[in-house]
């Protein structure tokens, strides 16, 4: 039986798109007879004791899946920190061969290719620490999901679920991600103009709720003219 470790890279404690994507994939992997475990990176590396548990989980897993948001064209700070820790740990530990590593990176802009640099960093990380690179899935427009179960989102996420189903088949069979899975994940969830409309409406509504609607584009650090 293969063991799979899902690492959630979103710093959000709940309602993250990373969690929705990761959860769907591990459900598919469980159905394919894999043992699964999920760790949220931010709390998992917050104390020495937890770090030990985290690192030992990365030692044991046959497949490690990182589900992370894109932060400023790369991976969020806690994910970067965790990668540095794993690299340091693996310099002194006895590493198993054949552990697979893959990532699912989602971003806020509608185009999936914003995630390319983050995926390149993941690939580099895998190579440097001795994981087998199984590939990277990039999703644009991730803010349309925010923690909702993919099973409940129906038509909008049809390409995502197809991509993750294919990924589960491939991983269960010891393969790397298929080109088709990558292509399906990168398909837009909706037309970009609709995404923009909904996205801006949502930010404005939240600003209204906090009574700062009129301040939305304030320049509090304007020290220089």
């Amino acid at each position: 039986m293969k063991s799979l470790l899902l690492l959630i890279g979103s710093p959000k404690p709940s309602d993250s798109t990373s969690e929705s994507l990761g959860n769907y994939l591990i459900q598919q992997m469980s159905a394919r007879n894999c043992e699964t475990k999920t760790l949220f990176i931010r709390p998992a590396i917050s104390t020495d004791e937890r770090r030990e548990v985290f690192l030992s989980a990365t030692d044991k897993a046959d497949i490690i899946i990182l589900a992370s948001p894109l932060y400023v064209d790369s991976l969020p700070y806690p994910v970067t920190k965790a990668m540095e820790m794993i690299a340091r740990h693996r310099q002194t530990s006895e590493n198993r061969n054949g552990q697979q590593f893959l990532c699912i990176v989602n971003c806020g802009f509608p185009e999936a290719h914003h995630n390319d640099t983050a995926i390149a960093i993941c690939r580099k990380f895998a190579g440097e620490v001795g994981f087998e690179w199984a590939g990277g899935l990039a999703l644009g427009g991730g803010e349309a999901i925010i923690g909702k179960s993919l099973d409940k989102l129906g038509f909008m996420v049809r390409n995502i679920t197809k991509s993750l189903d294919l990924t589960a088949d491939d991983l269960a069979n010891g393969k790397v991600l298929s080109h088709q899975a990558v292509t399906l994940m990168a398909k837009p969830l909706m037309p970009a103009w609709i995404y923009k409309l909904i996205g801006e409406f949502s930010f404005k509504r939240q600003a209204k709720k906090h009574q700062v609607y009129k301040n939305l584009e304030d320049c509090p650090y304007q020290w220089k003219s």
């Binding site: 979103s10 710093p11 959000k12 993250s16 931010r42 948001p69 932060y71 969020p76 700070y77 806690p78 930010f203 939240q206 600003a207 709720k209 906090h210 700062v212 301040n215 939305l216 584009e217 304030d218 320049c219 509090p220 650090y221």
Partner: peptide
């Protein structure tokens, strides 16, 4: 502190 991803700097205290 690490960014918490809550967009507070956009919708609660814009710009900070």
């Amino acid at each position: 502190a690490a960014c918490q991803g809550d967009f507070g700097c956009w919708v609660k205290t814009p710009g900070v």
